[in-house]
C-alpha cells in the first residue's frame, strides 16, 4: 500500500447519477413482476450522511438480496430453495435532498454456505453506495435485529468493533411500519468524507 493522501486529486471527484439511471419500479422490489412475491413485505429507509454529519443528497443506492426462501437469482447460486418468479432481488434509488432513501422489498431468507460445518448466512441485504468522492465508495451488508445467526457469521464478525457491528444491524421502527401493510426498518449509513483519514473496523 502506498499512502497517496498528499496527491489525491482525481479521487476527490465522483460520478453523479441522475434519475435516468433509475427505473420506475427500482425502489419497490415487490412490484417488478406481474404478481406479488412470496414473503414478508418490509420497508427499509435511512439517512446517508458523511462523517461530518452532512446529508449526502443524490447518492446512488443499489441493493441485492435473496428471496424469502434464501435463494439469489444469480446463476451461480445452487442452494436448493425455490426461485420466486415474482422476485428478482435487485433495486436502486437516489437519496433526496436530506440524504434519505427508501426501499420496499421482501425480508430475505438465511441460506447455507460452505464456510464451516452447518454454516448459514444470516438474512442480509447488500448495499452499494456512491458518495461525493470516489473515496467515499462503500459496499456493505445490512442485517436484521434479533437474528440468532449474527454472532456466528464470520462476515459480520469480520468487523471487530462491537459498535461498528451494531451499525450494520437495522432497527425495527414503528414509525416506519405501515399499518396493515409492512414492517419498517431503519438503516442509516455514514460514508467517509474528505476529512476521514482511515476507516475503523
Amino acid at each position: 500500500m502506498v499512502d497517496n493522501s498528499k496527491f489525491f486529486n482525481s479521487e476527490v471527484t465522483a460520478p453523479v447519477f441522475g434519475h435516468s439511471s433509475i427505473g420506475q419500479n427500482d425502489a419497490d422490489l415487490t412490484t417488478q413482476h406481474q404478481g406479488e412475491p412470496q414473503g414478508e413485505r418490509i420497508i427499509i429507509t435511512g439517512k446517508i450522511t458523511d462523517d461530518v454529519n452532512r446529508p449526502v443528497s443524490d447518492a446512488l443506492v443499489e441493493i441485492w438480496q435473496t428471496n424469502a426462501a434464501g435463494r439469489y437469482i444469480h446463476k451461480a447460486d445452487t442452494h436448493e430453495a425455490p426461485l420466486d418468479p415474482n422476485f428478482s432481488g435487485g433495486g436502486r434509488t437516489l437519496t433526496n435532498a436530506e440524504g434519505i432513501y427508501q426501499f420496499t422489498t421482501i425480508k430475505p431468507g438465511a441460506y447455507p454456505w460452505g464456510n464451516h460445518t452447518n454454516a448459514w448466512r444470516p438474512a442480509h441485504i447488500h448495499f452499494s453506495l456512491f458518495g461525493h468522492t470516489f473515496l467515499s465508495r462503500l459496499i456493505t451488508q445490512m442485517y436484521f435485529p434479533g437474528d440468532p445467526l449474527l454472532k456466528f457469521d464470520p462476515i459480520l464478525q469480520s468487523v471487530k468493533n462491537p459498535k461498528a457491528r451494531d451499525q450494520l444491524v437495522a432497527t425495527w421502527d414503528s414509525s416506519i411500519t405501515k399499518t396493515g401493510w409492512a414492517l419498517g426498518y431503519k438503516f442509516d449509513i455514514v460514508l467517509r468524507g474528505p476529512n476521514q483519514t482511515c476507516r475503523e473496523d
Binding site: 446463476k75 428478482s88 435487485g90 447488500h126 452499494s128 459496499i139 456493505t140 468487523v159 476507516r199
Partner: peptide, 21 residues
C-alpha cells in the same frame, strides 16, 4: 462525529444487480 459504516465483502452474487450485461 459519527464513525463511517464498515465495509463488507461484495460476495459472489452481485452480478444480476451490478454487472448485469
Amino acid at each position: 462525529m459519527p464513525k463511517p459504516t464498515s465495509s463488507q465483502t461484495i460476495g459472489p452474487f452481485f452480478a444480476y444487480c451490478l454487472t448485469s450485461s
